[in-house]
């Protein structure tokens, strides 16, 4: 296929760099799972809404109760998640299994509910939360961790494989 070389189709566009992709993944992950958490809180699956952490822990202004509070909460969650994604990217992206993402989510849950607990004075300590809340939040964090972790690991692995394949083709 020598004439192939001239085909415009064969030129590759510069793909998004892994880092910017992790930022997007983090943001979308934060927004999506944040929305789901808000929905679950609305249906009383969990006593603690994301809003309680992100806004209500430092302000009790009346706007935080309305839809504006929810939107801002979700956006802030997206921002925080970019950070969460970068941390995963720095330390764990080379582990190519979804179970690392699951573990990452569980670890995040532990950090928020145990280590950071004293910061959020407006939220009941974990022993006083009901069973549904604990189970729901663990599940949410695990899925959230999987979303970010597995996506980043897969992206990284995919890129490495592609580079390897291209090297093989040239050789």
């Amino acid at each position: 296929m020598s004439d192939n070389k001239q085909l415009d189709q064969n030129k590759r566009e510069e793909p998004l760099t892994l880092l910017s992709r992790s930022a997007i993944t983090g943001f979308v992950g934060g927004v999506f799972w944040g929305l789901l958490a808000t929905l679950l809180a609305y249906f009383n699956f969990t006593e603690v809404a994301p809003k309680a952490y992100v806004l209500r822990s430092w302000t009790t202004a009346s706007w935080t109760n309305g839809w504006l509070g929810t939107v801002i909460t979700i956006l802030i969650l997206g921002g925080i998640s970019i950070l969460v994604a970068f941390i995963y990217y720095l330390f764990m992206r080379k582990i190519n299994t979804m179970w690392m993402g699951v573990a990452y989510g569980a670890i995040l849950w532990g950090i928020v509910f145990f280590v950071l607990e004293p910061i959020f004075t407006n939220i009941k300590p974990i022993r006083e939360l009901n069973q549904e809340t604990i189970v729901t939040t663990i599940c949410l964090y695990v899925l959230y961790g999987t979303f970010i972790g597995y996506s980043l690991s897969y992206d990284y692995h995919d890129k490495v494989m592609k580079a390897k394949n291209e090297k093989n083709m040239q050789a």
């Binding site: 993944t25 992950g29 597995y150 996506s151």
Partner: peptide, 11 residues
């Protein structure tokens, strides 16, 4: 992966 592009995410 079965749930691609949702998870792993591909914008």
């Amino acid at each position: 992966p079965y749930l691609w592009p949702f998870l792993p995410f591909n914008p």
